[in-house]
Design a protein around this nucleic acid. Sequence first.
DNA 1: GACGAAGTAAACCGATCTGTCTACATGAGC
DNA 2: GCTCATGTAGACAGATCGGTTTACTTCGTC
Lengths: 190, 190
Amino acid sequence: MDKPLSRQDIKRQEILDQAQRLFWCSGFHATGVDTVLADTGISKRTLYKYFPSKEHLIEAVLDQYASAVDGALFAPAFARSSDPRGRILALFDVRREMMECSSFQGCLAIKAGQEYVGKHAGIEARSRDSSLYIEGRFVELCRAAGVADAEEVGRQVNLVFQGAVMTAQMRRSTDVFDAAKATVRRLVGL
Amino acid sequence: MDKPLSRQDIKRQEILDQAQRLFWCSGFHATGVDTVLADTGISKRTLYKYFPSKEHLIEAVLDQYASAVDGALFAPAFARSSDPRGRILALFDVRREMMECSSFQGCLAIKAGQEYVGKHAGIEARSRDSSLYIEGRFVELCRAAGVADAEEVGRQVNLVFQGAVMTAQMRRSTDVFDAAKATVRRLVGL
DNA sequence: GACGAAGTAAACCGATCTGTCTACATGAGC
DNA sequence: GCTCATGTAGACAGATCGGTTTACTTCGTC
């Protein structure tokens, strides 16, 4: 694996990275494809070669975002603790630090959901899948922790997690993560 | 009070209602002012007389939304129970029913936050204030319920509430409200 | 160095965006 | 009936949108 990137792969990746960065901090509708390309030296023709439409580009960005969540969120959190309960709490810590390092930007999948749910099936599906994936991981951790009714408690922890991320973004403050962690401690018994 | 609406008030209100409906289900950036006016027989000149810019219109819509939350959410919930804990749970029921009646549309203030936080101070402030208002009401209910550390628990309940609304929207299903209510029952001790 | 794939630059398309303007219609109060 | 505020209809401006196209350049490979 990790086969060398072809020239095409590099261009495609550069577009994806820039698009993710701009969609992330300016929104999807508010960011034009010209803006994505600006300062990259990449021509519009090349973008439309790899992504037949802006919606296709958004889908690809969300796919990239989804596959980055393991490395950016779960891996660091799991490295901080070997105990399942500790890992759950560490997820909140890592997420909090991520938001503090990105001027309180929230979740890209949530943002996409707000702008495209009910309007574009592919984007909506990726948005929903992101939400379900995180929930699944919480359930899994609850099960590993031996929590009674792990399925249910995992769903509850996920609600707190999503609520915290979104509320922190709206308030431009990560203070709510304190309440979130306290909630989770009660839910998983810690 | 309830002084008769002047002709101007009526026009202004008609614009606000239509704008709220469309922003609500199509988003802010995705809805043009022409779309707001379409089928209303109101001219663009009139809109720009009452709202000097689209952003001003959005702010006014959010103000209207904020002042409607008492009548649409809190009043019905409070009517269902006289017990503070029952009222907290009823808030989740009412919110759930609201979402089921509006094809899973979430919270307009959240949507505005996602699209304008960090980009427009007035809109951002209204978005944040909405979040804080709901939280304050939950705190107040926790206090009335005699919950120990009501301030803290109220914040926790709010996180679950916000998480549930947003998750339900993304999944186009209100199933998560079951987990949300179960969480809240544990938090407020019921 | 020649060749073909892959790229850039930029004009161009039609549609739409926010916002302004002119010209005309309507309505209530005197 | 006259007046004046208030309204509509719709053209218009200039910018930007997503997307296409043409003409030229760059780059890797043989």
